[in-house]
């Protein structure tokens, strides 16, 4: 990659250690979310009492928050592009934008959870509640970790500790961020859109 010219990796595969490590970790995460989604699918339609998915889902609302999260992948790419071009002002702007979109998504999820709870769906109400909250909750926790990493990058850049030679750090957080987005596409489709 052009911006990485300073960080020529001296590795047997030619890939930077941290990048390969992140890919390996994301491979592991596939099984993590795969197991959660499998549990959710196994329990579809097996709750013995309501509220059921069709009673609580607000598809237009969740579609908007999904759109917000997907847009954050775009701003993430723009942030990486900015640091690779050496444009640190734009880097910070896009990092902040990505973090804010992420915060909007998580805030929307918290609001959605409170609405569901008010309608009687809790962790211990039925199988739908257990599997829905744990699956989407773990996803939300992943987004939150991503936001923390984005804000850390933002702070480092402000302190002048994120020079262009360290663009890889932005790329690593970006890999994680895109992965969390992709998982959400699967969750949104499988959990919200496919009728039970």
């Amino acid at each position: 990659m052009a911006g990485d010219a300073v960080q020529v990796p001296h590795t047997a595969t030619g890939l930077d250690n941290r990048k390969l490590g992140m890919w390996a970790f994301l491979g592991s995460e596939c099984l993590f979310f795969g197991s959660l989604i499998a549990t959710y699918l196994l329990y579809r339609g097996r709750s013995v009492q309501g509220p059921f998915p069709e009673d609580v889902y607000d598809i237009p609302y969740t579609s908007v928050s999904s759109f917000v999260l997907l847009m954050s992948s775009l701003t993430m790419v723009l942030a990486l592009n900015a640091i690779q071009r050496g444009d640190h002002r734009r880097l910070r702007a896009w990092l902040l934008a990505t973090a804010l979109l992420g915060i909007t998504f998580v805030g929307g999820q918290v609001f959605e959870f409170t609405v569901f709870v008010r309608e009687g769906l809790t962790l211990s109400r039925n199988l739908f509640g257990s599997s829905f909250f744990v699956l989407t909750g773990f996803h939300g926790a992943h987004v939150t970790v991503g936001i923390l990493m984005l804000l850390t990058l933002y702070g480092m850049s402000l302190a002048g500790r994120l020079p262009s030679e360290r663009a890889l750090r932005v790329e690593l957080v970006g890999l994680y961020w895109h992965f969390v987005d992709i998982v959400w596409i699967v969750i949104f489709t499988v959990v919200y859109l496919i009728p039970s």
């Binding site: 549990t39 962790l123 199988l127 509640g129 744990v134």
Partner: peptide, 20 residues
């Protein structure tokens, strides 16, 4: 990660009253 999810579900059943 597979055992992690199993353990989370077990732990949540015991701690938070989920019904897995």
């Amino acid at each position: 990660p597979v055992i992690a999810i199993a353990l989370f579900e077990l732990g949540f059943d015991r701690l938070f009253g989920t019904l897995f």
